[in-house]
Simulated scan of single mutants.
Amino acid sequence: MKVAIVHDWLTTWAGAEKALAELLNCFPQAEIFTIVNFLEEGTIPALNRHVIHTSFIQRMPWARTRYRQYLPLMPLAVEQFDLKGFDLILSSSHAVAKGVISDPSAVHICYCYSPMRYAWDMQHQYLRQSGKEKGLMSWLMRWQLYRLRQWDYISAQRVDHFIAISSYIKRRIETFYRREADVIYPPVDVDKFCYDRPREHFYLTASRMVPYKRIDLVIEAFNKMPDKQLVVIGDGPDYAKLAALAGSNVIMMGYQSDSVLIDHLERSQAFLFMAEEDFGILPVEAQAAGAPVIGYGVGGLAETTLNNVSGLWVKEQSSDALVACIEHFEASKRLDPSLFSPKVCRQSAERFTTANFVQAMQSLVKKHLLH
């Protein structure tokens, strides 16, 4: 059986690429098709065994650093891939990968991380953050996003079967594409964490420093609790602004290696997460390290954490709500130290193991191929 795996772009090692690596392990004979590939050799060892096809955007000026600016050309680029003769097409898509044109005799299954947020429900936030709310450039971008939505919906109808990364994304697929979807949660390497190390008196948050991650709310909450310590790991466009916001009890560590992040997850009192996320691998990794998660109980977090068991859900995205939730967490622990135990947190994380992902994916692909 000839298998093609279509991935949006290969530029960084993140959650989508971790899922891609496991898809490649499931289908070792697969060829890879992607808009651009700028990963350093060896970043994803699983890639070394596969033929990788890139689009014409790979050769465009400044593509290595500004590939996202070629988004208006990406629908055209992905439709140029020649998939004639492939029996199974697996698209790993949060943007355009699902838009490939496949052989009618092939089965096309899309593992969907999310419909494009900037084209659909986050259009206004996207325009606001890019400073394009008004003027001629604003209307040009709105027109481009309008056309992109049209293509996105039409291309979604080419997919034979959708698989969503969470029930939250399943609902978005139903809303924007009018398509049903199965749910298979992304793989998380829980075994690399030790969950029974002694806990220390600090809270942890970690993320790329971009607005929707709402690290600002976490820092504001600890500015209101100067007796508690917060450690922040991560880098990104908003780092300087967030560092300026941080009080003396907030330690901004910037980008850190995976080993440093793991060490802090294994020692922290709790992991804080205030984003409305599609799935969110870090909260699962925190639980795998024995740390309860305190976060905004909407989206993926409502599926990956067990409220009052492996974490606490904050009811709204505000610093005051987070302060109240942390105070409730500490009061509950004083009354019953066995609450939110590292062992229970680890058991919650084990629902999302790599083995569970591989088994579910192979089973579902086999089912769709037979039907």
Rank of each mutant, 00 (worst) to 15 (best):
E327R: 14
L306T: 14
G297L: 10
S341W: 02
F352V: 06
H328W: 03
S338I: 00
A331D: 05
A302R: 13
C345V: 02
R334P: 00
P292I: 08
T305F: 13
G297K: 09
D320Y: 11
R346W: 04
Q317L: 08
R351V: 01
R346S: 03
P292F: 08
R351K: 14
A349T: 03
E316N: 15
A321G: 10
N307P: 14
K315R: 14
A331L: 05
S319V: 04
L306K: 11
N356C: 10
V358L: 12
Q317T: 06
L335C: 00
Q317G: 11
C325R: 13
L306V: 12
T353N: 07
P337M: 01
I294V: 14
T353I: 04
G295T: 04
G311C: 10
N308C: 13
A321F: 14
R334D: 01
N308Q: 15
V309T: 15
S341C: 02
L306I: 12
Q359L: 10
V358K: 15
T353D: 05
G311A: 11
C325D: 01
G295V: 06
V293P: 06
S310Q: 07
H328V: 00
R334V: 02
G300Q: 10
I326D: 02
H328Q: 13
L306D: 13
F352L: 08
G297V: 09
T304M: 08
Q347K: 09
Y296N: 10
F329L: 01
N356T: 04
N356R: 15
L339G: 00
A360W: 06
C345Q: 02
P337T: 00
F329Q: 01
F329A: 01
N307I: 07
F340N: 00
G299K: 08
L306W: 11
T354G: 03
D320I: 09
G311F: 12
A349R: 05
T353R: 10
D336Y: 01
V358R: 15
E350M: 13
L301W: 12
N308E: 15
L335A: 09
E330A: 02
F357W: 11
N308A: 14
F352H: 09
A324N: 12
V358Q: 13
S341Q: 01
N356D: 09
A321K: 11
P292D: 06
S310E: 06
V293D: 02
F357A: 05
I294E: 03
D320M: 11
L322R: 10
L322V: 08
F329E: 00
Q317H: 11
R351T: 00
L301N: 07
S348I: 00
S318W: 12
P292H: 10
L339K: 06
A349Y: 07
N356E: 10
S310V: 06
V323H: 07
E316D: 15
I294S: 03
V358E: 04
D336P: 00
R334A: 11
E327D: 12
Q317D: 06
G295E: 07
L312N: 12
G299Y: 11
E303D: 11
I326M: 05
S318R: 12
P337D: 02
G300D: 07
F352I: 05
A360E: 12
L306G: 04
R351H: 12
S310R: 06
T354C: 09
P342I: 01
R346G: 03
S319R: 10
K343S: 10
S332A: 13
E303C: 13
A355L: 07
E316Y: 14
K333V: 03
S338L: 03
